[in-house]
């Protein structure tokens, strides 16, 4: 069958998926006609919702996106940033560390 990809334990057919998605979109569009039509365009009813911010505060800059996630993960990011020093010495240091670890493991494993 065209587009059928065997994944070892199952299969994936993107063509069937795409046709199904198209039918679902049509259905959703059809159902949308039954929706409430009494809204007033140009009022707050049709304003974009953006996490409670007023549209005049848009655009929301990259710095503000996921701020809660970064605040919660602050400690972990500090630890990661400590490794990413940007110093060439550290690049070579990690290179040597990997060689030493792999050599040690391979030597012990080969005994």
């Amino acid at each position: 069958m065209m587009g059928l990809l065997q994944t070892g334990t199952g299969f994936w057919n993107p063509l069937v998926w795409s046709v199904s998605l198209f039918i679902i979109v049509l259905l959703v569009y059809f159902i949308r006609f039954f929706g409430e039509k009494k809204y007033k365009p140009g009022t707050e009813q049709t304003m974009p919702f953006c996490s409670g911010s007023h549209p005049s505060e848009l655009p929301i800059r990259a710095n503000s996106i996921y701020w809660g996630f970064f605040k919660a993960m602050d400690k972990h990011y500090k630890a990661l940033n400590r490794i990413h020093t940007g110093l060439l010495d550290d690049y070579v240091f990690w290179f040597i560390i990997v060689i030493v670890i792999m050599l040690t493991v391979l030597s012990i494993g080969g005994l």
């Binding site: 990809l5 994944t7 070892g8 334990t9 199952g10 994936w12 993107p14 998926w17 795409s18």
Partner: peptide
Amino acid sequence: PPFNGFASKLMIYESVFR
């Protein structure tokens, strides 16, 4: 789906799961 990244990732997920 249906982009190319999904197909290869699906193969990796399913086989690596075993």
